[in-house]
Nucleic acid binder design. Sequence first.
DNA 1: GAAAAACTAAACCATGCGGTTCAGTTTTTA
DNA 2: TAAAAACTGAACCGCATGGTTTAGTTTTTC
Lengths: 209, 209
Amino acid sequence: MLTPRTGGTRRSAKREAVLDAAQAVFLEMGYAAASMDSVAARAGVSKATVYAHFDSKDQLFAAVIRRRCDKSEAFVLADRTLDARAALTLIGRRLMDLLLSPEALAMYRVVVSESLRQPELAQAFYDSGPGAGKAQIAAIIAELIRRGELAAVDPRRASDQFVGMLRTDYFMRTLLGLTQPEGSRVDDVIDDAVETMLRAWGTASSPPR
Amino acid sequence: MLTPRTGGTRRSAKREAVLDAAQAVFLEMGYAAASMDSVAARAGVSKATVYAHFDSKDQLFAAVIRRRCDKSEAFVLADRTLDARAALTLIGRRLMDLLLSPEALAMYRVVVSESLRQPELAQAFYDSGPGAGKAQIAAIIAELIRRGELAAVDPRRASDQFVGMLRTDYFMRTLLGLTQPEGSRVDDVIDDAVETMLRAWGTASSPPR
DNA sequence: GAAAAACTAAACCATGCGGTTCAGTTTTTA
DNA sequence: TAAAAACTGAACCGCATGGTTTAGTTTTTC
């Protein structure tokens, strides 16, 4: 019979294959342009199997997005001895690597375009992506302030501004497919953002330049 | 007969109606989900007329985007006597009003999602939108530097960072439909960005705080 | 006022879509 | 090893799509 709907934890290998294929197809084609036939074909699975695991295209899409969101990584700095410049530079590096990855860019494109049609997905994406990142970076900045490495600012505000200075024109051009990520340019963006942060909020123990 | 293809300048009223309707439908539904039938219906026009003016869905979409791009507005400050704080605040206000307008948000969503499929449109959007804005703001910043209101920075870099600090978390949440633009929050974002800019790059004649 | 151009409504076409069904085969399980 | 569950491939459904055509009506143009 069909309809496995295996009791919660079970999840077959086919199911994962369908999710993998669906992720590839949705991120590549966009939600509306993606077809269930192409998902099945890409998964090397019959369409009946796809519908055995997922009730509808919407639900499959939601499952794909939620699975990605659950994999959100942590920025937590292992090394708490870093000074402000080193800490911010490291955060910047990690964030830029993440933001500029082809998969994250594709995810951003499709979630943004479907956000009004699927508000719960937009919320889930925000919470596990930008929202979580902001909170983590704010925590690190708060620690830097506590250690006297940065002047007293609202850490969440500083986090917003720092991330904003990373996600600039260069990010937009990459998002639009107008340029390929290039290491040296990325480093410049990071260094510039760190310098401005330190000029604005640095202390004697974390001088700019 | 059909196929007006009126010689360049002519452009009938029906053509404008089709473009208006197409803009509404594309920005509202996204490219793939929008149908030519709904465009015709919304324009109060027969489908044959739509195809008399535009060869295909792609071309109609392109015409819509290009028309919007051509309407890009200028940020040029009329008043050259403003100090750095006032000038940056005014720029911020205008930029935020533009970025957070429902139409600009919808445009951003659809262009971003179609950027890989329609690279020329992505380029046109960038050039007339973010690219033009960056150039204009950089010119104003250059003027402020010349007048000794700001320290010597690369004006384009400062422009990127300033815009980045405006397009933060708040913009993302609005883009995703998670919040409605609220005046006081917007003002806070602008004031915070201006303050950080002045702390980092202000001079004696443009003190922060 | 008449020819030319723009437009209309509706039927039409082929295609592809999301989703279902079915008869039969493979895999899992105990 | 046999029953139960998962899976296959292909046919199928109804419908909407992008795009065309036709036959006739309105508007523009000079």
